[in-house]
Design a protein around this nucleic acid. Structure first.
Length: 936
RNA sequence: GCGGAUGUGGUGAAAUUGGUAGACACGCCAGACUUAGGAUCUGGUGCCGCGAGGCAUGGGGGUUCGAGUCCCUCCAUCCGCACCA
């Protein structure tokens, strides 16, 4: 009986589904294990071989833990809202709900082919009203909460109202310290004042505290398309589609007050098992810094002060100029008549620049406003400039520039010939800035002679004493923009009345996204929903009107791991007792591209739900494993310029050629299938080929796997040709899970051969099952037990590539010994089950036919074998013998031998004597079980 | 610009704690079996050299008896940067 993988895999996939073997109960006496993949966005292109990499890893781990006796939750679902479906709808007139469902079906078929152990009864999709009902519900919880800085947690807004009624906001300042109450102009109000405020004023104050709130934000606005664009839809200041100009536009937006969680998001990193790189990225994104806000007076504008934030107040005497973000609201006022034209021109230029461009720009640009600030300590005049390198959103949108200590400031000063004050003596060389904190200050008034590090605190004290500055902790992270001017997302459970946002009652949920025949942008930057007046003014909104924006992609993905636990619940997003049983995700697998977006948002949502008492843990993911990308290996053909002739790689240098991507699916290794190529596109139908050695050889290059580069490989094709087990093991065999590596279909045959060899240990093409009950030999036991140990170690540390090699070695070695003994092969089969479940299940079935003691319905529920040290003991080792660190020979030496015995043996060795040349060795280094090194 | 990661044979890689560099595969070469091979099996394969031997983990320097691994420095490539998901 030969290894007919197609038949076997189809059979078991069907049977496993019939028997519901992947159904996971919410109650069990077994320990729990939650293994989760980052759920996919179901794109129209379907899966390519890069996508399942992480899924295979998590599936292996899930199955491995199941064998070890865990109740393993391993679900899958779809992040189904998003821009591409909406764009597809605009381009093709197909409603996103329809194209999304088609895509999901396609994804599921592809996933099913690979034999994953997902419990599909728990499938979710974020665009399903049964799901987004709870996304809206959580939004309402955030809207109805505020962050109490005293208790350091989210609390109900009704509690805050009580505080305001009895004591005002004296103890609970506005999170945005620049906010002023419109009627009083103050940032403080008393209980009496609160009680006299009208409805509008109260709501306007409350929204300043809510965790979900409305504010004004800047977006990329494309007038010609009438729509807001994502950063990656903007290329060099124009829209990717159509090349129309894009400018910044201020729009009302929803936000989540994630900044209130900044400190806890930082602290929480200490409790989770993420890579250091990941923690570092999140830490940098949060960007906590401490320093001071300093008030600068402005000459001729006694009524205004210019606030700057700096982490280095110790350098205050080295300030040679100020830089404001061009958007800073005092720019207009400060600009002198002389400079007005230049400033306006510059602002217009900056308007067209994306934040990314501004930060990446190497060319220094800026304009002098004509105004001068005054140094608060010595009254020195400081010119005020504007430049794009200062961003409005960070700090106060203005900096004090210290060219001797900051590289960007230094370049700016050099470029515009601004004189540089040296406050650090020899530490500054006049050529480049030195950001040291260790220098002793000079030219620094009352700070002269003090080291910078020691000056930091006294300066802040003095600033506070003189009321010209305050100690300040700052975060680079901004509140998360939570609305999109799009159709295909969750509607907000909000009604607008007289310009005030009111929450809808929970029993009104879900607010269903209305079907629309045509999806096009609304007026004035509003989302497509604004065109549907009937819906906007629906009775549901209680006489008010609906929010026309929808929620962003990350809304649904910020909590989906909770819904899998209790997907059918229509009373709660997840039953508390079930959330308590499953708890944190034990292993979360996905790409690093989510390092600072999804992962921070879901961590924040988890903390908020924890604060409000809905779940019992405040970090969602205990361990995070990042999978690398699988890159494409592109193939090129070389067309002789201006002809329809294609010249093979080795001969291309003799011609003037254009390299053209050829579809990798009709290239075998590097050899082009000329017929397939001709059939590919009409323009190649009559292609002529200049061959070398009778074949056409393509060029190759590693690039991102993408349709446009014709280097995508569909897992369906691979599974059809080699089987799911081969595919799974080959993906793992490619290399470490966390590293990027190119796909090479050619290499898969080694893994396929391995599975066939493995099959032949059990089955003979003619005789059928050849497994025996013969007694085992020590050599065979040694192979088995070292394999168990290694597979266990490697699986635990997610080193799946080395695990696959270990299987190969074991099968090679057992093959050499012609071992067909059940006592060896059955445990081996259990080891193989997580990696290649179909073949393992089939061979188990074959074994069951001859062994009545095997009675489990499926090998998936066998017990993981234990390895025993007694089969692994060695009595001697082949030692490497080095002279002066260079390997010269090896010697087999007993592990019992004492150092002096080893020394004698080594010195007596012929090769050693030759190299020592009669000299007596200076030193002999002997490390037991490792090596011997002679120093002569 | 800022942040993160990665550089080892022709290719994917291994070397888990500083101790025999290249396991396991792909490819290639030679052979066996075969009407045939995109099947199976055997042997070989880092580079230079006839050989003794020498040289090799992106480049340069350092620590050490010993460095792919630790330190310094330079270079290259990839990824992220807030409306792609």
């Amino acid at each position: 009986m030969e290894y007919s993988f197609r038949e076997i895999e189809k059979k078991w996939q069907y049977k496993w589904k019939q028997d519901k073997v992947y159904h996971v109960p919410n109650q069990s006496s077994k320990p729990k294990m939650y293994v989760l993949d980052m759920f996919p966005y179901p794109s129209g292109a379907g899966l390519h071989v890069g996508h399942p990499l992480g899924y295979i890893a998590s599936d292996i781990f899930s199955r491995y833990k199941r064998l070890q006796g865990y109740n393993v939750l391993h679900p899958m679902g779809f992040d189904a809202f998003g821009l591409p479906a909406e764009q597809y709808a605009i381009d093709h007139g197909i409603h996103p709900a329809i194209s999304t469902d088609q895509n999901i079906q396609n994804f599921k078929d592809q996933l099913h082919n690979i034999g994953f152990s997902y419990d599909w009864s728990r499938e979710i999709k974020t665009s399903d009203p049964h799901y987004y009902r709870w996304t809206q519900w959580i939004f309402l919880q955030l809207f109805n909460s505020w962050y109490n800085r005293k208790s350091q947690k989210a609390e109900s807004i009704t509690g805050l109202i009580k505080i305001f009624e009895t004591e005002g906001n004296d103890q609970y300042p506005f999170p945005n310290d620049r906010f002023r109450i419109s009627i009083t102009g103050s940032h403080i109000f008393s209980a009496n004042e609160w009680n006299t405020f009208g409805e509008e004023e109260r709501m306007n104050i409350l929204i300043e505290y809510r965790l979900a709130y409305c504010g004004i934000g800047e977006v990329n606005w494309c007038e010609a398309l009438g729509t807001v664009l994502a950063n990656d839809e903007v290329v060099n200041g124009v829209s990717e589609r159509g090349g129309h100009p894009v400018v910044k536009k201020k729009l009302r937006q929803w936000y989540l007050r994630i900044t209130e969680y900044a400190d806890r998001l930082l602290k929480g990193l200490q409790t989770v098992d993420f890579t250091d790189a990941m923690k570092e990225m999140q830490t940098n994104w949060i960007g906590k810094s401490s320093g001071a806000e300093i008030d600068f007076a402005i000459q001729d504008h006694p009524e205004k002060i210019l606030k700057v934030y700096t982490t280095r107040p110790d350098t205050i005497f080295g300030v040679d100029f100020m830089v404001l973000a061009p958007e800073h609201n005092l720019v207009d006022l400060f600009t002198t008549t002389d400079q007005k034209n230049a400033v306006e021109e510059y602002i217009q230029f900056v308007q067209s620049r994306s934040e990314r461009e501004r930060m990446a720009e190497k060319k220094i640009s800026g304009v002098f406003t004509g105004a001068f600030a005054l140094n608060p300590f010595d009254g020195r005049q400081i010119p005020v400039w504007i430049s794009e390198y200062v961003l409005a959103g960070y700090g106060t949108g203005a900096i004090m520039a210290v060219p001797s200590g900051d590289e960007r400031d230094h370049k700016f000063a050099q470029h515009f010939n601004i004189p540089i004050t040296n406050i650090i003596g020899d530490h500054y060389n006049g050529i480049e800035a030195n950001p040291t904190k260790d220098a002793v200050l000079q030219n620094s008034g009352f700070l002269n002679g003090i080291s910078m590090r020691e000056a930091l605190e006294p300066v802040i004290d003095k600033l506070e004493e003189q009321k010209i500055g305050t100690r300040k902790v700052n975060f680079k992270m901004r509140d998360a923009a939570f609305s999109r001017q799009r159709y295909w997302g969750e509607p907000f459970p909000i009604t607008w009345k007289n310009g005030i946002a009111y929450p809808l009652d929970e029993n009104k949920l879900p607010v269903i996204l209305p079907p629309m025949d045509e999806i096009k942008p609304g007026k004035d930057g509003e989302g497509p929903l604004s065109n549907n007046e009937e819906w906007i003014n629906n009775d549901l909104f209680e006489g008010g009107h609906a929010e026309s924006s929808t929620m962003p992609g990350y809304a649904g993905s910020s909590w989906y791991f909770l819904r899998y636990m209790d997907p059918g619940n229509d009373k709660a997003f997840c039953d508390r007792s079930i959330a308590d049983y499953w708890g944190q995700v034990d292993l979360y697998i996905g790409g690093t591209e989510h390092a600072v977006g999804h992962l921070l948002y879901s961590r924040m949502w988890t903390k908020a739900l924890f604060d409000l008492g809905y779940i019992g843990f405040d970090e969602p993911f205990k361990k995070l494993l990042n999978q690398g990308m699988i890159q494409g290996s592109s193939r090129f053909v070389y067309r002789v310029h201006g002809t329809n002739q294609f010249v093979s790689f080795g001969l291309k240098d003799q011609y003037q050629v254009d390299a053209i991507h050829a579809d990798v699916n009709f290239v075998d290794g590097l050899v082009l299938d000329q017929q397939a190529f001709r059939k590919w596109k009409a323009e190649y139908a009559n292609a002529e080929f200049i061959l070398e050695n009778g074949v056409y050889i393509c060029g190759a290059e590693v690039e991102k796997m993408s349709k446009s580069k014709f280097n995508t490989v569909n897992p369906d094709d691979i599974v059809e040709k080699y089987g799911a087990d081969t595919f799974r093991m080959y993906e793992m065999f490619l290399g470490p899970i966390d590293q990027s590596k190119p796909w090479d279909t050619k290499g898969i045959e080694g893994v396929h051969r391995f599975l066939k060899k493995c099959w032949r240990l059990f089955m003979d093409d003619v005789k059928g099952l050849i497994v025996t009950d013969d007694k085992t030999a020590p050599a065979e036991l040694k192979i088995l037990h070292k394999t168990i140990r290694k597979i266990e170690e490697d699986t635990e540390r997610f080193s799946f590539n080395t695990a696959v090699s270990t299987f190969m070695i074991a099968v090679n070695e057992l093959g050499e010994l012609k071992c067909h003994k059940k006592e060896i092969l059955l445990p081996l089969l259990v080891l193989l089950t997580p990696y290649a479940p179909h073949i393992a299940e089939e061979l188990y079935l074959q074994l069951k036919k001859v062994d009545s003691k095997l009675e489990l319905a499926t090998i998936l529920d066998m017990a993981w074998p234990a390895w025993d040290q007694k089969h692994l003991v060695e009595s001697s080792k082949e030692y490497p013998i080095s002279i002066n660190g260079k390997l010269r020979t090896t010697m087999i030496i007993s592990l019992e031998a004492s150092p002096s015995e080893v020394e004698t043996m080594v010195l007596a060795n012929e090769v050693v004597q030759k190299w020592v040349e009669g000299k007596s060795p200076k030193k002999i280094i002997f490390v037991k079980n490792k090596m011997v090194n002679l120093v002569v």
